[in-house]
Amino acid sequence: MDYSGYPVVAARHPWRWVGTAAVALGVLAVAWSLATNPRWEWGVVAQWFTAQSVINGLLETLKLTAISGLLGFVLGFILALMRLSASPLLVSASWTFSWIFRSTPLLVQMLLWYNLGYLYEKISLGIPFTDVRFFEVQTTTLISQFAAAVLGLTLNQAAYSAEIIRGGLLSVDQGQLEAAAALGIPAWRRSTRIVLPQAMRAILPTAFNEIIGLVKGTSIVYVLAYSELFYTVQVIYNRTQQVLPLLLVATLWYVVITSVLSVFQYYIERHYSKGAVRNLPLTPWQKARKFFATHAVANRTRSL
């Protein structure tokens, strides 16, 4: 039998259409209520969204995230290496660090750092167990709100990222380390050039979870009356009583930051998948260009 002249009829999926319609209806209903319910007060949201004080708060949030995220992951990397080292002392020090900072609430850590001046009036550098002091400083002048916030967020972040990075490093084949050692590549270079880039594939998805969590986690520093985004919004709505619209302003900004981070995540993960897959998949942008290119060609051929 020769079937070459028969046209192909695609299979039908009626339930797929029903499902799509139901979801579309739901989305539409939500959008409708957001747009038409006057209590959302979109006008107020728009008015405050780019207000100078809100933008300042946003910048503080970004600053806190960037500094504590960066320091947290660097410290976490060192803690992970300590945990994987052959020295029992380093291993237990690293373990204890993670244990302490993972078992105390961030809120408590934050308040503790801020009130360090109550526990220790002065911080000094000297020879332990003697009266020799090289310099001495009042604790309250050293630990500002900003310092307490960065300290709290960084140490907490380090404890979590240490485990994430350790997991990533462990996922790399032992043969890689052996090959590098056999080639005489120095230990630090072995970690940073051979193992870490390969570990990145396992580290990145969870690390971005952490950073996105940190963006919103910075809102906890409102307990220190530190004027980041969330605290700023609170101050405003306590004055104006427009609680929901202002919470919406903060929320929208958090959504924007997370979205931007997600785009970064996509491209960074793609960068580190070099060599792990035979051919890199196209980026959405490349896909779109390809789509339009082929369709433009198709249109042109059709018009001929």
């Binding site: 084949d173 043969g175 890689q176 052996e178 090959a179 590098a180 056999a182 080639l183 005489g184 590549i185 120095p186 270079r189 050039r193 051979i194 880039p197 390969q198 580190y272 070099k274 060599g275 792990a276």
Partner: peptide, 28 residues
């Protein structure tokens, strides 16, 4: 003392040339 392994143990994130040129630049 060079060593060649059963499972090659090439560095998968580096190109063939980068694999070959890595050690001479950093090893003492």
């Amino acid at each position: 003392i060079g060593m060649v392994f059963q499972n090659f143990n090439l560095f998968p994130h580096l190109t063939a040339l980068e694999n070959v040129a890595e050690a001479p630049v950093v090893a003492q």
